[in-house]
């Protein structure tokens, strides 16, 4: 029973990954050409390229912003749709919609929302502040470009985290809340002392998954800013893409992939160790 699944996983996931390591040690290019072994030259070239470090910084910045925003929003929405409110199933469906919308479509929608100077978002800000806060060039200003990408990424992807949180919430026995009510705990205290500890495992899972996702940031940036303005949204995957497919250096791109893999691996392990129950 498991064999077909294992074969598919091995062929389409494991094999390319395993092959990318030897490839990263060659000067292989996209078009067929004689291939030469170059040792760790590709790694040295990547690690000495300031654009790579800029990309790594950007993606870290993105992660630091998007993980709390996206997970926080997902948790808030999960708490909301876990209530016994009328039309709960409608909300459950509606809130999950962005997650099943193609990222390309989401980019077009948000690209319109972000328009400078007269896009809807800028108009709303102008309206709410009585015109005091001027229009923001969301995607055109290096200071706001990454936060803008964070906003749209979190909005697009929180549905998955929301569903995981919802499952986590439903795994917390209801009588714990009743015991806490009898103990005199307020709504906030019930969240603090029952919900939050009860979500511990869920949190670890969600935060690690979101972090990994965040480090792979690519599509949004590629569609909306292509890394600009002034490299403020260059990401590691985008760097890999431009090296491999635009610059046609597959060996070099493989080295980037391997480096990214180890960065993500180390971060996940550290997160898991830190977030794990100390006792």
């Amino acid at each position: 029973m498991l064999l077909p699944a294992c074969a598919i996983v091995a062929f389409f996931l494991l094999l390319p990954f395993v092959l990318s390591f030897p490839m990263s040690l060659t000067n292989r290019r996209l078009i067929p050409r004689p291939v030469r072994f170059v040792g760790f030259d590709n790694y040295i070239q990547v690690l000495t390229d300031p654009i790579f470090w800029r990309a790594l910084f950007n993606v870290t910045y993105f992660t630091v912003l998007v993980v709390p925003v996206q997970c926080g929003f997902a948790l808030a929405m999960a708490l909301l749709i876990n209530q016994k409110i009328p039309g709960r199933n409608f909300f459950r469906g509606a809130l999950f919609l962005p997650a099943i919308t193609s990222i390309a479509v989401v980019c077009v929608i948000w690209g319109t929302l972000f328009q400078y100077p007269t896009g809807p978002l800028n108009q709303i800000i102008g309206f709410l502040t009585f015109g005091l806060a001027g229009p923001i060039d969301w995607l055109g200003n290096p200071n706001s470009s990454m936060p803008a990408i964070v906003l749209l990424s979190a909005w697009q992807a929180y549905g998955f985290q929301m569903v995981v949180y919802l499952a986590g919430l439903q795994g917390i026995p209801g009588d714990l809340y009743e015991a806490a009510r009898l103990d005199g705990a307020s709504t906030w205290q019930r969240f603090r002392f029952v919900t939050w500890p009860g979500l511990r495992q869920t949190n670890i899972f969600v935060i690690i998954i979101t972090t990994i996702q965040a480090f792979k940031l690519f599509t949004q940036v590629n569609i909306l800013t292509q890394g600009g303005p002034r490299d403020s949204t260059v990401t590691v995957v985008q760097y890999m893409y431009s090296v491999g497919f635009v610059g046609q250096k597959l060996g070099l791109a493989s080295a980037v992939a391997i480096i990214l893999f180890f960065i993500v691996l180390v971060i996940s392990l550290v997160q898991r160790a830190v977030l794990r129950d100390p006792k």
Partner: peptide, 18 residues
């Protein structure tokens, strides 16, 4: 409930696990 002067023992015990 907390001001009724009652305490309850649940079938599942409902102890705070952490």
């Amino acid at each position: 409930p907390s001001e009724r002067g009652v305490a309850m023992v649940f079938q599942s015990y409902a102890l705070y696990p952490h």
